[in-house]
């Protein structure tokens, strides 16, 4: 089956539906599927639930989807870099489900691995655990968290091949491998599609079974906090 597509628009063809749940890779603006996000904005699809660690900034990344109010709910751990998000949330126009970062990562990992729930000590005794089942193991209390699947996962990798095998670069890996496993359909955007067989088979981070569609694109790779030391 052909997995390689020519662009974000082509790769998203027939996939988007109002009200769907999307898992999006990236940490801050690092390793985000920026071309897919822009294409989703242009599609006009709405009422989205998006699971992503962050919500981008006002004019880049997932922040773009807030401009036309395409997002109904975010599942995130930190949204502090986005003023538009804060405004819409405080005005009651946008729902947020805060998940601790490690819990969000594990929910996606578990969901993708066929595990419907897991116990963690993270969040015990806080708002996060309210209304959730708790259980004691070896004298310590843990809270039950659910595995998370998404109708669509959008991820960004460094290199990929026509089989959908992916490798990530440095900290641009972050949530992308977990999101890739959690999508009923996973679309990967990569900097370069290389011939099948040319990736080091021992260094593939996401095996092709998880990826249904792939395309190559240019990436702006905007930097949020440009910090340097003197040379």
């Amino acid at each position: 089956m052909k997995k390689v597509f020519s662009s974000a628009d082509e790769a998203l063809n027939g996939v988007l539906k109002d009200g769907m749940t999307i898992a999006a890779g990236g940490f801050g603006l690092c390793g985000i599927p920026e071309n897919l996000i822009a294409a989703i904005k242009n599609s006009g699809v709405k009422e989205l639930t998006i699971a992503s660690n962050n919500a981008g900034v006002d004019d880049f990344g997932l922040g773009l989807l807030l401009q036309d109010r395409q997002v109904k709910k975010m599942i995130s751990s930190y949204v502090g870099e986005n003023d538009l998000f804060m405004q819409q949330y405080l005005a009651g126009e946008l729902e947020i489900e805060f998940n601790p970062q490690g819990t969000l990562a594990e929910r996606l990992r578990a969901g993708g691995a066929g595990i419907p729930g897991f116990y963690t000590a993270t969040g015990v005794g806080t708002k996060i655990a309210e209304g959730k089942e708790t259980k004691e193991f070896d004298g310590k209390t843990y809270v039950l968290e659910r595995g998370l699947r998404a109708d669509l996962a959008i991820v960004k990798a460094w290199k990929g091949d026509a089989q959908g095998n992916l490798t990530y670069r440095k900290t641009a890996m972050n949530f992308n491998p977990e999101c890739a496993t959690a999508g009923k359909i996973t679309i990967a955007e990569v900097e370069e599609i290389v011939p099948v067989g040319s990736l080091d088979k021992m260094q593939i981070h996401t095996p092709g079974v998880y990826v249904q569609r792939i395309f190559a694109a240019n990436h702006e790779k905007r930097i949020e906090q440009r910090t340097t030391r003197a040379a």
Binding site: M86, G123, V124
Partner: peptide, 13 residues
Amino acid sequence: VKGMGGAMDLVAG
């Protein structure tokens, strides 16, 4: 409303 990021996991683990 910023969120906890990784802080809840750090203090738990």
